[in-house]
């Protein structure tokens, strides 16, 4: 049994004459959280809908747990749980009835496991209330409970923190990490926020205009682009000193910007202080998605 749980090869989708997805390739491994990063309209949702069998690809193949989604739909689907966009459940049914409803569409889910899942997403107290009385966070959690019912190997979550409050976002993040690390699931998460991907994913695919422009470990990507922002006095002296050891750019508000290199940054600081420069502020700054895009696409804007 290979470690690859989801494999996408040459995936394309053409609507009318317009090619929306232009040949995607990527593999997901067991136990990892994989981020799907791109601005709105990059093709994230279309791709996810093809992965879960809602949209038929124009060409290319998708395998989940070794089963082709088109040729072996039911087998592939039984390896996968998903939430596509918002967790839209039957609002006129209770949480429990919703779970029962989806359990009936799976081959044998026992009651004990349903209760276990409810426990896992901590909905025990409200599970017998109608879904229309749920908060967005609760709906999101019920959505995940529903996705976990079939004991999937792959969990696909489209914008899972969309609309959640900071507390909810943190909870969701921890939960996703837990599922990957403790339960060994592969989790595919899409987002348009780099900060979010950075906090919960191991690897990330950056997509733009229907094509993957980079697949890499999150650390590598960030290292490429992470910056230190210096607020120093006097500025000119500091700039001279720093430019001897690294590249310096002048930022707005009289700041200096250098790359972030883990061990070097503190020594640069020492250097500055020793030469009598007053270091008022030293900030590590993560790149914005825009910066990453600019870097990766060589100046092409997101739009």
């Amino acid at each position: 049994m290979s470690d690859i749980t989801l494999s996408v090869k040459g995936l394309r989708k053409t609507i009318g004459k317009k090619e929306i997805i232009k040949g995607l390739d990527f593999d997901l491994k067991r136990g990892e959280v994989f981020g799907f990063l791109g601005p709105n309209g990059a093709g994230k949702t279309t791709t996810i809908r093809m992965l879960v069998g809602l949209i038929k690809p124009s060409s290319g193949s998708i395998e989940i747990g070794g089963y082709n989604v088109r040729k072996n739909f039911t087998k592939a689907m039984s390896q996968m749980g998903c939430i596509v966009e918002n967790p839209e459940l039957y609002s006129y049914l209770t949480g429990w009835e919703n779970l029962e409803h989806f359990a009936r569409m799976l081959p044998e889910v026992d009651r004990a496991y349903m209760e276990y899942v409810v426990d896992l997403v901590r909905l025990n107290e409200r599970i017998h209330d109608q879904v229309k009385t749920y908060s967005l966070g609760m709906r999101q959690r019920l959505g995940i409970a529903q996705a976990l019912l079939g004991k999937p190997k792959v969990l696909i979550l489209d914008e899972p923190t969309n609309g959640l409050d900071p507390m909810g976002i943190r909870e969701m993040r921890n939960f996703i990490r837990y599922l990957a690390e403790e339960e060994g699931l592969t989790v595919l998460v899409s987002s348009h926020l780099l900060s979010e991907i950075q906090l919960m994913c191991d690897r990330v695919a950056i997509i733009s205009k229907g094509a993957v422009i980079k697949v890499d470990y999150v650390e590598n990507l960030l290292a490429m682009q992470e910056r230190v922002i210096w607020q120093v006095e006097p500025r000119e002296t500091a700039k001279d000193i720093l430019s001897e050891v690294t590249s310096v750019v002048e930022g707005p508000d009289g700041a200096l910007i250098t790359p972030y290199i883990e061990n070097a940054a503190s020594s640069w600081n020492r250097l500055l202080v020793e030469k009598g420069v007053e270091v008022k502020e030293m900030n590590r700054k993560l790149p914005a998605l825009e910066d990453l895009f600019l870097e990766l696409t060589g100046g092409e804007s997101i739009d």
Partner: peptide, 14 residues
């Protein structure tokens, strides 16, 4: 219109 079709059609049921 409620979007539940997305859940309905991603089950292992043809």
């Amino acid at each position: 219109s409620a979007g539940t079709v997305k859940l309905l059609l991603t089950r292992p049921v043809k």
